[in-house]
């Protein structure tokens, strides 16, 4: 357990070295932590609080305020389905249903193998390409439910089950 948490702290040491030890660095540090760990682990947040001299309650407040931060472990690939008005009208619900069926998880959940996290987002600002599905960093516009499996790259894997 101790070994594990030491290993867990290694990327943090490097991140903290990049920024001045002050309150103003908090969000940048949290963003880098999120990138390195794919979420904000609570013991890492405690260390951030200590290092920057920001009370833990404040760190938690900021961490929960921004939707970009997650406090629970997330899958390697984050799948976002836009549910903005345009996407909703052009079939976002069907995309969500298809993603749910393929990944066997509900929006906000992560697959047990930590492969995917499924999320719905309010609007990605790409209404002209509605409905929009974002897999990791790749944006898939004008998507249809039939294209979701390929976009996720899960078809074969789930057929093997």
């Amino acid at each position: 357990m101790i070994e594990q948490s030491c290993a867990q702290m290694a990327p943090l040491e490097e991140i903290l070295g990049r920024y001045p030890r002050e309150e103003a660095s908090l969000i940048q540090v949290l963003q880098d932590v999120h990138r390195a760990y794919n979420y904000l682990p609570c013991d890492v947040l405690a260390k951030v609080s200590q290092n920057l001299g920001v009370p833990l309650a404040k760190v938690f407040s900021v961490s929960t305020f921004y939707k970009a931060f997650s406090l629970t472990p997330q899958g390697k690939i984050i799948v976002r389905v836009c549910t903005g008005t345009a996407c909703h009208i052009r079939g976002a619900t069907q995309l969500i249903d298809e993603a749910r069926r393929l990944l066997e998880i509900a929006p906000g959940e992560t697959t047990p193998d930590m492969g995917f996290t499924l999320k719905t987002v309010n609007c990605v600002g790409a209404c002209a390409m509605a409905p929009v599905l974002i897999v990791g960093e790749k944006v898939h516009g004008n998507t249809k439910p039939a294209k979701v499996a390929k976009a996720l790259g899960v078809e074969e894997k789930h057929h093997a089950h």
């Binding site: 009370p55 833990l56 309650a57 938690f60 407040s61 929960t64 305020f65 939707k67 406090l71």
Partner: peptide, 25 residues
């Protein structure tokens, strides 16, 4: 003391200690 703070946002906003656990501070 800074033991509690506002957490989450919008309709889900509430006052809570860090991680909704006994506040260390």
């Amino acid at each position: 003391v800074f033991a509690i703070s506002s957490v989450n946002r919008g309709a889900g906003r509430e006052i809570a200690p860090p991680f909704h656990e006994a506040p260390p501070d």
